[in-house]
Design a protein around this nucleic acid. Structure first.
Length: 812
DNA sequence: AATACACCAATTTTT
DNA sequence: TTGGTGTATT
């Protein structure tokens, strides 16, 4: 995002000392390098080995980012390259931002932003914009996201008369993405593969899609790399200029690179302007690579994105691809205690396809990893809730606590539980900021203003808010546009001069077109942020959400404000639009103390003192589909995911499994995950659930050493225990009931809330009275049906009846 | 254009 | 069982 406004593609940065020049060397000699001081020997080796290919195998918590940033600092301060001569790629904007931030701290103001530090896609996009005409685009091309992509594909499918029920556009989008991930242009897709979609039309559709993108002056995410590769291959002079420019290349998370990214890197890191075609033996095309200074940092044990095209092979093959490569292992872990690290290491050692590292720590042994069995997923959520409250009583911050689940549907139960407990939590992940409908709508308006030929954007907002311009109108505009080979908005302009349309629709469309003309004129006199405000206001878009009474309307309006705010960082509308789809990510806003709930995937790269890992059951984790579809490779990836999960923990890792879990509505009896059996007994403590009911063992489905857990072993006086006693009395003891029969299985017991037993309950009377109309951030509007201290039972209009703590609602 | 009903799918997600 | 989508009906 910053690179966009600060440094146009071909600008030279301010004067920097000549690489290796006298001044630079003198400076390096004079000032001891502070960035080298707190590195361990391996890290230091990774930082100082500048020449030739280097692979840094950086285990979890071994200081990967530190090495990358220190290495850049080292290159700069020894004068080996200027900032503009270092290419440094990451996968996410977050990682790129983090690196910029840490570099800034390390170097002070000595170096302004690194122009070529960014994500694969943003850098690819940037290169494409500089040479757009060579790939049949204009430099202001639009980057389509998944949503645009699918709408476009739907149009193509209907043009081909393909039933999009049988052949969904989503599926085609997935296929095309997959091909692009593998670096395949339409011509390169194996015929057999292209034929599987739409009765053999897959290949043609891919080709048509690419052509349509050119007409729309648009690229999708995959194109940002694939078209870049095509550019390099078809224009060796361009490639050479970049090869000459980048004296050093650094790659973060190398284990996550896909084939396209690999090819892209290879082209840039090679002296010769030739890349191996897919499938070609890499060694042949490699020859000159050894001379180049590429440093890849990654961890094969944390490769968890195979399903979206990442090739673990890239990292496993590194020494083969880059002959003479130096491999440096970072094995000293600075994050976790002994027991946690031992458990994680022992678990991952069960994988076969790995380069192998032995993590060690100098930290204390700490607490053992705990494994807790629960009767069902509700009890699991109660148990976790109890433990969190206990931690809270001991003075731990909620910010230091995370719950990491395998699949997002698991989150609901925790959310429900936390809502009833009044425990603040935040869900990480979910739809990203720029994917939200309101953001995309707002952007569509701006896109149409900026480039009237943007049909996808035009179509998106022509009837949002509702203007009486429905499908019929749009279809008519389409026909008109196609006949004359003009963009939709031009077609609209022409059609309103005719009497083809009903008067009402015609007037409405004319108003819209006049508005766009007015806004385009205003663009020249007011700032782009002001323009955005005007547009959102005059189009009736803001009003549409103001009138909306659903729970998230307020949030959407807030998002729109945030969008306008974020525009300020860019110089003009054009610059904003060029980068927005690549850099807008989830909102920060994390200052409140709250438990984090997220998937294991989105937890990669994060760390917490206390990590809860629920749902360790066969079928869920490892996930059945991973096993079915990928076999052993799938299992190993799941195991890596488990490894990632455990290594997120600094001080406590708490694993859970539930004997009964509801899947697609029906209760199933599960068996504990094989990963639990793969943990080293010496570092693991088996505890009983404090969440309520006991559990009954796994009931004869295969054996596990967790089968013979003693359920109610000790006396407990925690709230959970008391609750458990009461529940046991109520439901007749969790042992035999409804066992083995998994169709109706374990029945759902009523949720018991004893206000006085819950830690956070205050007992003070609620400020609300019966039948009060209230609003809840998550559930929307509803009315109070029952009051119990500060616990309210509310019948929500949309979400149904829920029990919530009064501080979570406000009067409506 | 809005609502009602039927139908289908139901890991993981960045850019 | 749920939720989301898409079609059919008013």
């Amino acid at each position: 995002m910053t690179e966009a406004r600060k440094m146009p593609a071909n600008d030279l940065p301010a004067y920097q000392p000549v690489a290796g020049g006298i001044a630079a060397r003198a400076r390096a000699a004079a000032a001891p390098a502070p960035y080298l001081d707190n590195l361990n020997p391996e890290q230091r080796d990774a930082v100082e080995t500048l020449d030739g290919p280097v692979l840094v195998l950086a285990g979890a918590g071994t200081g990967k980012t530190k090495v990358l940033t220190s290495r850049i600092a080292h290159i700069l301060s020894t004068g080996r390259a200027r900032p503009g001569e270092i290419l440094s790629v990451t996968f996410t904007n977050k990682a790129a931002r983090e690196m910029k931030h840490r570099l800034g701290i390390m170097l002070g103001q000595a170096v302004e932003g690194m122009p070529w530090l960014g994500t694969f896609h943003s850098i690819g996009g940037r290169i494409l914009r500089s040479h757009a005409e060579l790939v049949q685009l204009k430099s202001n091309f639009t980057v389509l996201d998944t949503d645009d992509q699918i709408r476009l594909l739907k149009q193509l499918l209907s043009a081909e008369n393909i039933d999009d029920k049988r052949w969904p556009a989503r599926m085609l989008a997935g296929l095309i993405d997959g091909w692009k991930n593998r670096g395949l242009t339409p011509a390169q897709v194996p015929a057999g593969e292209a034929a599987v979609f739409g009765n053999g039309k897959g290949g043609k559709l891919y080709k048509d899609y690419q052509e349509r993108l050119k007409t729309l002056n648009a690229a999708d995410f995959g194109d940002l790399l694939l078209e870049c590769i095509r550019l390099f291959r078809e224009h060796p002079d361009v490639l050479r200029s970049y090869q000459a420019r980048f004296k050093f290349i650094l790659v973060d998370e190398y284990q996550d690179t896909n084939v396209a990214q690999y090819l892209w890197l290879r082209l840039l890191s090679q002296g010769a302007a030739r890349a191996p075609s897919p499938g070609e033996d890499n060694a042949i095309a490699t020859q000159t690579a050894a001379t180049r200074n590429i440093c890849c940092v990654g961890d094969d044990d944390q490769s968890i994105y195979g399903w979206r095209g990442a090739e673990v092979d890239n990292i496993l093959r590194f020494e083969h691809d880059f002959p003479g490569a130096k491999v440096i292992r970072l094995e000293r872990n600075y994050r976790s205690t002994g027991h946690i690290l031992a458990a994680a290491s022992h678990l991952i050692a069960h994988n076969e396809g790995r380069l192998g590292k032995t993590l060690r720590t100098e930290d204390v042994d700490g607490e053992k990893v705990t494994v807790t069995g629960a009767w069902d997923s509700e009890e699991e959520a109660r148990g976790v809730g109890e433990e969190i409250e206990q931690l809270q009583r001991e003075g731990h911050k909620l910010n230091d606590i995370a719950i990491l689940v395998r699949a997002s549907f698991q989150m609901r139960e925790f959310e429900d539980r936390f809502v009833t407990l009044g425990l603040p939590y935040r869900v990480i992940g979910g739809p990203r900021f720029y994917e939200r409908a309101e953001i995309r709508d707002a952007l569509a308006y701006l896109r149409v203003i900026n480039s009237p030929a943007d049909d996808l954007a035009f179509e998106r907002i022509v009837n949002v808010p509702k203007r009486g311009l429905g499908d019929a109108t749009v279809q008519m505009l389409h026909d008109h546009a196609r006949r004359r080979r003009i963009p939709l908005s031009e077609a609209a302009r022409q059609v309103i001069e005719t009497d083809e349309m009903k008067p009402k629709a015609r007037g409405s469309l004319r108003d819209l077109m006049l508005s766009f003309e007015r806004w385009r004129k205003q663009m020249e006199v007011v700032s782009h942020t002001e323009l955005a405000e005007v547009v959102l206001d005059e189009s009736g878009y803001t009003e549409m959400w103001q009138k909306d009474r659903s729970a998230d309307a307020a949030g959407r309006l807030e998002n729109l404000k945030e969008l306008v705010r974020s525009m300020e960082e860019f110089e003009n509308l054009q610059g904003f639009l060029e980068h927005i789809s690549l850099v807008m990510d989830r909102e920060g806003a994390a200052d409140e103390d709250a438990v984090s709930v997220m998937t294991l995937h989105s937890a990669k790269g994060l760390e917490f003192d206390n990590v809860f890992l629920p749902g360790w059951e066969e079928g869920l984790f490892p996930h059945q589909r991973a096993l079915d579809e990928q076999g052993r490779a799938g299992l190993e990836e799941e195991r890596r995911l488990a490894h990632v999960g455990i290594t997120r923990a600094r001080k406590r890792a708490k694993l859970y499994f539930a004997t009964n879990r509801r899947i697609h509505g029906t209760w199933n009896t599960t068996i504990p995950s094989r990963f639990l059996d793969e943990l080293p007994a010496a570092n693991v403590e088996i505890t009983e659930s404090k969440g309520g009911n006991g559990w009954g063992g796994a009931g004869g489905y295969g054996s596990s050493r967790f089968d013979n857990l003693e359920a109610f072993g000790s006396t407990y006086s925690t709230p959970g225990w008391q609750r458990a006693q009461q529940q046991r009395g109520r439901s007749g003891g969790g042992y035999g009931d409804s066992f083995g029969g998994n169709s109706g299985g374990a029945k759902k017991r009523p949720m018991v809330i004893e206000g006085e037993l819950v830690a956070k309950s205050t007992g003070t009377d609620s400020a609300f009275s019966l039948d009060d109309r209230v609003f809840h951030e998550k559930f929307g509007y509803g009315h109070v049906t029952k009051i119990d201290g500060n616990k309210l039972t509310i019948d929500f209009d949309k979400a149904g009846e829920k029990k919530v703590v009064d501080s979570f609602v406000r009067a409506a």
